[in-house]
Simulated scan of single mutants.
Amino acid sequence: MTRAVWLKADDEVGDWDARRQRITAGLEAGVDWVLVDREDVARVRELGQVNVAAFAGDDVHVMDAEPDAEPDHDATPDALVVGKGTEGDGTVDLPNDLSGSADLTAVRRNGAQGVYVRIRDQRYETFAEEAARDADFTIVVGEDWKIIPLENLIARIGEETDLVAGVTTAEEARTAFETLELGADAVLLDTDDPDVIRETVDLRDAAEREHLDLTWATVTAIEQTGSADRVCVDTGSLFDHDEGMLVGSMSRGLFFVHAETAESPYVASRPFRVNAGAVHAYVRTPDGKTKYLAELTSGDEVQVVDTEGNTREAIVGRSKIEKRPMFRVQAEVEGDRIETLLQNAETIKVATREGRTAVTDLQEGDEVLVHYEDTARHFGEQVEESIIEQ
């Protein structure tokens, strides 16, 4: 499931200066959507690139245009949301027959994509369920967040619509993303605190990230070879001390290679770099695929992994290829042989049971950290077929 963070920035937030500051903080953090009043749509587009949803207000026909009118794309929202100032937020009483609601009519007949509902009692929960039948987005906000019937809504409408839960803190967002193990598709965050906005976006990213099973492989051979074209992958991110990348000559068995975060008496640390090996080797990417190191160019994404198997994404800033003397490292895992070529230099380190170890100090019998999967790959995709790599 793809999670999203919406940021509420309508006139309830304050004047335009207050709204602008909130939106700017959201853009800098990387929110997916900004929810504003319709008159602010063009203003938001001037601030940066983001999906913009707009409240329709009392006019449920605002998406209708004159037949010959030229649309103003800057002022046209990516999604129109009904419910503010109407039945959705309780400004207008809900009718006994919910199917006759103006908000529902707007979704079904007048081009709105979303419905905003404040959950005041059981009737509003039912109203949200009705709206979800036709709405692309169903935004639900509790009068008291702790009693939002989110479990009921996830269970009943989770597959019919993108359910967006209103929250005010990152901790509430975490709960919304984890409820019933499925969680809401998105959260609508109502806060001015830039730290809370960033924390919520980080939670979104963490929910999407893969966790890998890493295991130990026993080194069966290590030998100096001739020179080869090796690749330093310089990213636009700084690595933590326990992070690196997964690389190897065989896609089924990738070695954990540390980033150059450690100080050395010979060269300064390069905490944005992984000296990843020869050009032929595979490197794992965030989508679970692999690429050849030779293919990496500026702007590509690579997967960063720590020694516990937690992952994140990093953007390649530069791929630096130079001819260098190499080591061939061979290891055995689950009775299978895997190997890779790494530069013959003490600054290149792998993870062993003894800790961070330079490739120049590796010996037969050492155990190194690897990611092993008993499948082959074709153009980076896992395939169920017999492929011999040697």
Rank of each mutant, 00 (worst) to 15 (best):
Y116H: 03
E199A: 09
L98E: 14
T261A: 13
L246N: 06
V82W: 05
N110H: 14
G299C: 06
A281W: 04
L98H: 11
A135M: 11
A42W: 02
I154T: 01
E66G: 14
P95M: 07
E160Y: 08
T169L: 09
A184E: 06
E172M: 12
P325L: 12
A135K: 04
I388T: 13
V52I: 04
V274S: 01
V231P: 07
E160S: 15
L150Y: 09
I222Y: 08
I119Y: 05
F255Y: 09
N152H: 03
I388P: 02
D374N: 10
V107K: 02
L238Y: 10
E28V: 02
E381M: 10
V36P: 07
V219P: 11
R118S: 00
I23P: 01
V279C: 10
D213V: 11
E178V: 09
A314M: 09
T179G: 12
T307D: 02
A221N: 14
E130T: 11
Q21S: 15
E308K: 03
E346H: 09
R19V: 10
L94M: 10
D366Y: 14
T235P: 11
S319C: 03
L47C: 09
A53Q: 05
R324L: 11
G114R: 06
D234S: 07
I139D: 06
G88M: 10
C232S: 15
M1L: 03
V34N: 03
L203S: 06
T24Y: 00
D336K: 01
G253F: 01
E346S: 07
G335P: 10
R318G: 10
D185F: 02
V41P: 11
D287E: 11
Y372V: 08
E125V: 14
G277E: 07
Q224V: 15
L238G: 11
A18Q: 14
A165M: 06
A131T: 04
E364R: 15
R273C: 11
P194I: 01
T357F: 12
L293K: 00
E364N: 14
T191Q: 13
I148T: 13
E130L: 15
I315L: 13
R19C: 06
L153D: 00
G248C: 07
R284L: 06
Q390P: 03
E87C: 05
L246D: 05
M326Y: 00
A69T: 10
K8V: 13
V31E: 06
G253V: 00
T91S: 08
W16P: 02
A206R: 02
D11S: 13
D193K: 00
S249M: 12
T297K: 03
S269V: 08
A262K: 13
K349D: 11
E354G: 13
N51R: 04
H61E: 12
G83L: 08
V36E: 11
A106P: 10
V201H: 02
D374L: 02
H211R: 07
D374I: 04
D58I: 08
R174V: 15
G158F: 01
E28K: 01
D144P: 05
D89M: 05
A56P: 01
V44M: 04
E87A: 09
L182R: 07
Y124P: 13
V219F: 09
D37V: 03
S386W: 02
N110W: 15
T2D: 09
